[in-house]
Design a protein around this nucleic acid. Structure first.
Length: 343
DNA sequence: GAGTTTGAAACT
DNA sequence: CAGTTTCAAACTC
């Protein structure tokens, strides 16, 4: 019955009630409801044992329109608070959004066929595209905010924490829910993970907002990127960042650089000279000097420019661009050295 | 363990 | 949007 009702509404793409029925057996329903709208004449019922969100209105049961309910990242549960009588909204909540994100896609009823999963997916997509959900932002709730409390920010209740006067638990669900609403009004992405994939199919994770570090060089755990063991990206606004991708042959580079020392030739201006001398720092007296021709310099500059252009095209941060260029510079020098030392 | 530093998030 | 405050974690001693 639930399935047929939802299918009916899905086909009609109506805002408002997703399905209506006056005789739904709630104990046999599990619904993946995500956002609904409280109605003046109705109430929400929450069934803790089987996640269920139903608006009981005059003339029947309604489950209200759903939006922003993509099937990804549904990890937390934000349900309407458990009011004293579990039947009526607070007057102040009338018309306000109800958020209910389930941790997983659940069966709509106990006897669905094997096509259920696909059906649910299509259902979510269709509803998401037709809803008119609009959050309100007039609720001011003083509660531990999303940023300060890790449990709250991750959508969890506090459990075995050392927090004082904690409201982030099932006993204070009214306050908790209002705080969630305030946070979501302020920042719809407040409860999304900070670290995610930058693009579909991208293997490397990245920080969704980027860091703003100023003093740590992004090389301490103060930096969210560093803490997550990822390099800073172009969206970071960090100053003096040292947290960028290491070249696979950095070791080679460092070894090479240890043996290098750019010498003087013609008033310290390398571009006015035809050759450059590189002599090893170690065992300086015994190793022969390495000469770099003007052609080598030109070729190196061209390769560095290519790197700079690629960084610009890719929209990388300045520090990342510098890193790419320096890595290329290292490769150039390494090649020059290898050729000369072979000779 | 106390005090300091740091940066995200909240706040103005 | 920029500057300031608050907060909790990281860090240092």
């Amino acid at each position: 019955e639930v399935r047929d009702a939802i299918r009916n509404v899905t086909e009609n793409h109506e805002d408002g009630a997703i399905f209506q029925s006056s005789n739904i057996d709630e104990s046999n329903c599990e619904l993946l409801a995500l956002h609904g709208v409280a109605e003046e004449s109705g109430y929400l019922h929450r069934n803790y044992s089987s996640p269920l969100m139903i608006c009981q209105l005059e003339g029947g049961t309604q489950i209200f329109c759903i939006k922003d309910c993509g099937t990804q990242d549904l990890k937390t549960i934000h349900l309407i608070p458990q009011y004293e009588d579990q039947r009526n909204y607070l007057q102040s909540d009338v018309g306000s959004p109800v958020t209910a994100v389930l941790g997983q896609l659940l069966p709509v009823s106990g006897n669905l066929d094997s096509n259920k999963q696909e059906f649910e997916h299509e259902y979510l997509k269709s509803v998401a595209s037709t809803s008119t959900f609009q959050p309100e932002s007039n609720l001011q709730v003083k509660m531990t905010s999303a940023g300060y409390c890790e449990c709250f920010a991750s959508g969890d209740f506090c459990n075995n924490c050392n927090c004082n006067n904690c409201y982030n638990n099932p006993l204070h669900e009214t306050e908790r829910f209002k705080a969630i609403k305030v946070c979501l009004d302020r920042n719809p992405e407040a409860f999304l993970p900070k670290i995610g994939q930058s693009k579909l199919g991208d293997i490397k994770p990245h920080h969704n907002k980027g860091c703003n570090c100023k003093r740590s060089g992004c090389l301490k755990n103060y930096c969210e990127c560093f803490e997550a063991k990822i390099v800073c990206s172009s969206i970071c606004k960090c100053i003096g960042c040292k947290n960028y991708e290491e070249s696979p042959d950095k070791k080679t580079q460092l070894t090479t650089l240890n043996y290098m020392d750019i010498g003087n030739n013609d008033e310290n201006n390398p571009f006015l000279t035809t050759t450059f001398e590189i002599s090893p720092k170690l065992e300086k007296d015994r190793e022969p000097a390495v000469h770099i021709s003007l052609e080598d310099v030109k070729a190196t500059c061209a390769r560095l420019l290519v790197q700079a252009e690629e960084a610009e095209k890719g929209g990388y941060s300045v520090c990342l661009a510098e890193c790419m260029i320096m890595e290329e510079f290292g490769r150039c020098l390494s090649q020059i050295l290898h050729v000369q030392l072979k000779d």
